[in-house]
């Protein structure tokens, strides 16, 4: 039984429409008895489904290949372990260390890594536009750019281990953020100067909320390039910046 449908019978219909459209929250949806209406429930479930899929699915080989990324992996071996053991997502094996030392440019000014993080969707949605912006931008400013890497099951701080092995000056980690119900496409860029294992989180700079409805890739790219230039000039990142 539907007691009320404020979409057809509110005290102030204009006001209700405005509330529903102005707020990003789920307002003015009405009810069926004490429960939400079926359409509201399904819309909520659809958003949650997209968020879950972003966490649980992998970045496609095609995306990795098209972006010209060399794929490596953290110590994590599957999705369950990734979620339960963030410590292992920050580390690489000795074999991986050897692999990247052999295959990658040594001691670049800027090393870019892409991590699936908590949203493969974010990587899929942003990388194709963002990466060329960054490599072009860095080269224009005269920075050498290292071999582009994709790290499967990577956490933010894996940038320290990789940067230390490659003796990079600066590492940029493009990583999928934990999805919300409003978007699963949000990516963050973490930047660190003088990467070494155990470097505190506070010494990392971050630009977040990179997605088509937030900070679009093209604007994010310009911001990241500028920030790398600042980090290079000041020889520090995060709280070390003035």
């Amino acid at each position: 039984m539907t007691d009320i449908d404020p979409h057809t019978d509110p005290e102030d219909e204009t006001a209700l429409d405005r509330i529903a459209s102005a707020s990003p929250s789920r307002l003015g949806l009405g009810r069926s008895g004490t429960r939400p209406r079926t359409a509201s429930v399904l819309s909520f479930r659809a958003d949650h489904a997209q968020a879950r899929d972003a966490v649980l699915t992998h970045v496609s080989e095609e995306t990795i290949e098209n972006a010209g990324l060399l794929k490596v992996t953290s110590l994590v071996s599957d999705q369950d372990e990734y979620l339960a053991r963030p410590d292992r997502g920050r580390q690489i094996s000795e074999e991986t260390a050897e692999q990247i030392r052999d295959a990658c440019t040594h001691a670049p000014d800027v090393q870019i890594i892409v991590c699936d993080g908590l949203s493969s969707t974010a990587v899929e949605a942003n990388i194709a536009d963002l990466l060329p912006m960054l490599t072009d931008g860095f080269e224009e400013r005269g920075f050498t750019v290292g071999t582009l890497l994709f790290v499967e099951f990577g956490r933010v701080d894996i940038m320290d281990a990789i940067g230390e092995e490659l003796e990079a000056d600066i590492v940029v980690n493009l990583i999928g953020e934990r999805p919300g119900l409003n978007t699963a496409k949000s990516l963050s860029a973490y930047l660190v100067y003088g990467p070494e294992r155990g470097k505190p989180t506070a010494t990392k700079s971050v630009i977040s909320n990179i997605h088509p409805d937030g900070l679009p890739a093209i604007e994010a790219g310009a911001q990241i390039v500028d920030l790398v230039a600042t980090i290079h000039d000041q020889q520090g990142s995060g709280i070390e910046l003035t």
Partner: peptide, 25 residues
């Protein structure tokens, strides 16, 4: 409780405003 269980600021889900009357009932 948050609207329809969706907190758009903290980006997580909790009980809905609707759940109150259901639990009272």
């Amino acid at each position: 409780s948050v609207p329809m269980g969706d907190d758009t600021m903290l980006n997580y889900q909790s009980n809905s405003y609707h759940d109150a009357a259901a639990l009272w009932d």
